[in-house]
Simulated scan of single mutants.
Amino acid sequence: MSRLHAALASDQRRLVLAYFERTGEATASLDDLTAFLATQQADTEREHVRKNLHHRDLPKLADQGLIDYDARSATVRYWGAPTVVPADEWSQYLTRGVVA
């Protein structure tokens, strides 16, 4: 499995990217992402979501070059679809199953 596939194996990491695809925003705060993910994952504590984002999911996405994560300012910048994937397919893949 490629490193990109490994990074996208997590529902939570796909939801982070879906947030940006859905909103069209290029940046978001950790609080914005936490709130979005908490609405998408019914039985998950908000603080648990935040900790996983900060310690696991955002660093893994940053390692793949999909985002930049500044832990000090708790800010995330999204760089868009990888160049090896057509943008429309990327958006459909990420937003499949996302609750409105």
Rank of each mutant, 00 (worst) to 15 (best):
G80A: 00
R3V: 05
L58P: 05
A18M: 06
A6C: 06
P82V: 02
L94D: 02
Q41Y: 09
S2F: 13
L8R: 11
A35D: 14
T83I: 03
L4Q: 08
H48V: 13
R56T: 15
Q40F: 06
H5K: 15
Q12I: 09
A18F: 06
S73D: 11
L37I: 15
L37T: 06
K51C: 07
T27S: 10
I67D: 05
A18H: 06
V16K: 01
T44M: 11
V49G: 01
L37N: 00
R14Y: 10
W90P: 00
E89V: 04
P82F: 01
R3I: 14
E89P: 00
H48G: 06
D43C: 02
R22M: 15
A18Q: 05
M1G: 15
Y19D: 12
L4P: 07
A74I: 03
A62W: 03
H55G: 14
H55I: 15
P82G: 09
G80R: 03
T83D: 06
A18N: 04
A28F: 04
S29R: 07
E45R: 13
Y93V: 02
L17D: 09
R72W: 01
L61P: 02
K51N: 11
A26C: 03
R50L: 10
A26I: 03
L37G: 05
R77P: 00
D31H: 12
G65H: 08
S73Q: 07
R14T: 13
L53M: 14
P82M: 03
E21Q: 12
F20N: 02
E21T: 12
R13L: 04
Y69P: 05
H55Q: 11
A81C: 12
L4D: 05
K51Y: 12
K51F: 09
L61K: 10
E89N: 07
D31A: 12
R50G: 03
R96A: 04
R13K: 13
Q64T: 08
D32T: 14
V84Y: 00
D70A: 13
E21C: 15
